[in-house]
Design a protein around this nucleic acid. Structure first.
Lengths: 336, 336
DNA sequence: CTGAAAGCGCTTACAG
DNA sequence: CTGAAAGCGCTTACAG
């Protein structure tokens, strides 16, 4: 069943004017006599006319759409950023569409092409593969890269201060009295991962503490295995810097099986600050990335770009914060 | 910085043929001499030409895009369905774009219009408000409605058997020896919620058990308050049918505070079967909705619709399953 | 097999 | 202020 929609010509006929006049009324792009405008408005209502955006953007080169490409639609952190992008976009009359690349370079390329082809006004992407360079280079749209090593052409990079995040978490665990904090080291192919590692290493060095870490993916599919390995390799661990908040669910499971109490035996600091962290039991102490700001800023950069405002700079490093909850215990003297 | 893209006319010029011929090569829509085809292919490569989908779909009326509109981008269950939609779509050369309506009717309407305007081939929606009727009626696209009471016009409704789900969960709790199973009753404005409630009520009646329930939202923002209220009103509760899996995180928190053990003191059955349930500690016994199938079927219905195949029927009720994990304990005699 | 032409549904110079 | 015309970048009858 296909409902045929009214077209601008139908409206024009009904109102007794030309399509051009109808267009001008809709867009407010030129003066139209009050009387004709009124007739047009009535005709629009009567016909239920909605301008065809395809035709419109074929001419206008802008569809007021921002594309957000993520490697996984199941990544809560990225979805929380998406929500912020969406809000900012909508406030400015833009729409956000989310595309799931499923960590598949072919899909990623396909969505970049689709967004280009549909005259989107920009792309926000957490690209995580290098093969993408060519697609991005061939894409004429403004591109904001999130959170990852930016390679090749882009309009701006928006990420949080991962070095500071790594430091902050480590320093806090030491302050809480941990002697053997172990880092679940994020993938080192990402600059974010390298920065966090660096932050951890530097703090260890400054405190004369031996750095301990195991490599961990962001994805929690392997979380159980990874958590188990951590405890096997470092049975004396008394503090853990989780690769991200989600991973802590697996950590809890393994710790409980081994009857290690949190925070009594082992303290934990997560990373990201997704809402889920507050729902866990015990509630998760974590590094808060400025999720809302990352999303809004990224959207804003693209919207400004449309108005030919180039961003102040190409790299935005947003500050992180420590959120203390229940998986850490501050030292007793801090009460004084 | 705007990169100007090659157009079909550039390719034609370079290959020494007409744009029509280039189009025919790209689309395989008519025979082209081998020699010219070869020249065209070379010219395409040389220019890096990508057909403008906007222009293309203005004529073709199909953009090979399926829109998936959800009330919240943070709903894991809906995102898992989205992943399945995406996979099915991609296999057939379609793309899925996810639109977040944020439970805002205006956004919902805006996205429906956008998808219509961009000649999407169909919409999959978990509409949850009644005001939407008009938008949907005015939308000429195939629409598949998920999981909710379908109102007005639509191509098909795909949902799982909520009545059976309600029954299954209740029966299992009784089988495990619960005397006072309490239902976190899902919002009754949804047919899915009403069906589950009915399933629960019927089983209670059949077993001569007093039905106990409190109203609960799907959203876990209010989870803590809701869980607390449940325990206050029914302190003797020994089994809980959670409104969904996510809500169980809040439940755990409250139960732990009150020193009630799971499953020793209180057993829990979740609802949905999201992956997160398996990461919880204890791992969650739950009703598995056929997430993968819901997504794939919905996508398939739309894709078939494009080829003018009307679906076999308008209502698909998919079967649910019980997944036993650690929040329930089967009766001892079941070993024999 | 192939090109010139018309058309998809809008928008905007161009004249008046 | 307003309409006829051209154009956005493709695709597909229509002739040949």
């Amino acid at each position: 069943m296909v409902i045929s929609l009214a077209q601008i010509s139908d409206v024009a006929k009904l109102a007794g004017v030309s399509p051009a006049t109808v267009s001008r009324v809709i867009n407010g792009s030129a003066k139209v006599s009050e009387e004709k405008a009124k007739r047009v408005l009535e005709a629009i209502k009567a016909t239920g006319f909605k301008p065809n955006e395809i035709a419109r953007s074929l001419y206008k080169k802008s569809s007021r759409i921002i594309g957000y490409i993520v490697p996984s639609i199941l990544n809560i952190f990225l979805n929380e950023i998406g929500r912020a992008i969406e809000e900012e976009a909508f406030q400015h009359g833009y729409k956000m569409i989310l595309c799931n690349s499923d960590e598949n370079p072919k899909k990623e390329a396909a969505y970049i092409q689709m967004l280009t082809a549909m005259n989107a006004d920009g792309i926000i992407i957490t690209a995580n593969n290098e093969n993408l360079d060519e697609e991005i280079r061939n894409c004429p749209l403004p591109i904001v890269v999130l959170d990852k090593e930016a390679s090749g052409r882009y309009t701006a990079v928006v990420q949080s201060d991962n070095y500071a995040g790594g430091r902050l978490a480590t320093e806090y665990l030491l302050k809480c009295g941990c002697k053997h904090p172990v880092l679940m080291r994020p993938p080192q192919k990402y600059s974010s991962g390298r920065q966090r590692f660096l932050g951890y290493m530097d703090v260890c060095k400054e405190h004369g503490i031996e750095p301990l870490f195991i490599d961990s993916p962001f994805n929690s599919n392997d979380g159980l295995r990874c958590s188990q390995e951590l405890l096997e390799r470092f049975p004396y661990v008394d503090g853990i810097l989780a690769v991200n908040d989600m991973m802590v669910l697996s950590l809890y499971k393994v710790l409980l099986m081994q009857r290690r109490r949190v925070p009594d035996d082992i303290m934990i600091v997560g990373y990201d600050g997704i809402e889920l962290g507050g729902l866990m039991t015990p509630e998760l102490t974590t590094i808060l990335q400025p999720i809302e700001e990352i999303g809004r800023l990224s959207a804003k950069i693209i919207i400004d770009q449309v108005a030919d405002k180039t961003p102040d700079r190409q790299e935005y490093i947003l500050p992180v914060k420590l959120k203390v909850r229940q998986t850490t215990r501050p030292p007793a003297e801090s009460n004084g």
